[in-house]
């Protein structure tokens, strides 16, 4: 076995086990820390397939910024006791959750099916990547030319979410 396969197995095991711990732990702070570990392992998987830019962003945005806010809020609320008791939640909620998870798995599986056989094409093939000067350049060029509309739309969605949050927070205070 070569080092890459060992690293892949180790990272995916960490990612899956800590993702499970997020749900199974009673202490919310512990859940948050498990989620951080899971994100970090996923970033390691991205780096393993050569997507260094995505890996860096995964750590920078999710692990380094969003999860700090998560932990911050959890600590501020001082939620020592379990907020959601798994055994007491209604049967319907559990079943809906399980169904949603299974549907997500199936949809992702179908969506990723072509990726198993076809090599990366167009600007994403290895020769093209080297010729045009690295992964980061290719990604940013395609993001700001071909996918500009989707990109701007996503940022607009985020802006809407921020405005909504501020509006909700303000109303509660008065």
């Amino acid at each position: 076995m070569n080092a890459e396969i060992i690293a892949f197995i180790a990272l995916s095991t960490i990612a899956l086990v800590s993702a499970l711990l997020v749900v199974l732990r009673e202490n919310p702070v512990g859940s948050a820390f498990s989620l951080i570990l899971s994100f970090f392992a996923v970033a390691g998987l991205y780096a393993l397939v050569g997507a260094h830019f995505v890996a860096a962003l995964q750590i920078l945005v999710y692990t380094g910024a969003i999860m700090v806010l998560f932990v911050f809020v959890v600590m501020l609320l001082n939620a020592d006791k379990p907020v959601l008791d798994f055994l007491k939640t209604s049967k319907w909620i559990k079943m809906t959750g399980a169904a949603a998870g299974i549907i997500l798995l199936i949809v992702t599986g179908i969506a990723l099916q072509p990726a198993r056989t076809i090599q990366a094409t167009g600007p994403w093939s290895t020769e093209q990547l080297i010729a045009s000067g690295g992964h980061t350049r290719v990604l940013s060029l395609s993001m700001f030319s071909d996918h500009l509309f989707a990109f701007e739309l996503t940022s607009f969605l985020l802006l809407a979410a921020i405005v909504a949050t501020i509006a909700l927070a303000k109303r509660r205070r008065s």
């Binding site: 970090f40 970033a43 260094h52 830019f53 890996a55 860096a56 962003l57 750590i59 920078l60 692990t63 380094g64 910024a65 700090v68 690295g134 992964h135 980061t136």
Partner: peptide
């Protein structure tokens, strides 16, 4: 390839 982004990412941990 990501250079400085790696620095910021790891430093944020």
């Amino acid at each position: 390839d990501v250079g400085i982004l790696y620095c910021f990412a790891i430093a944020s941990l």
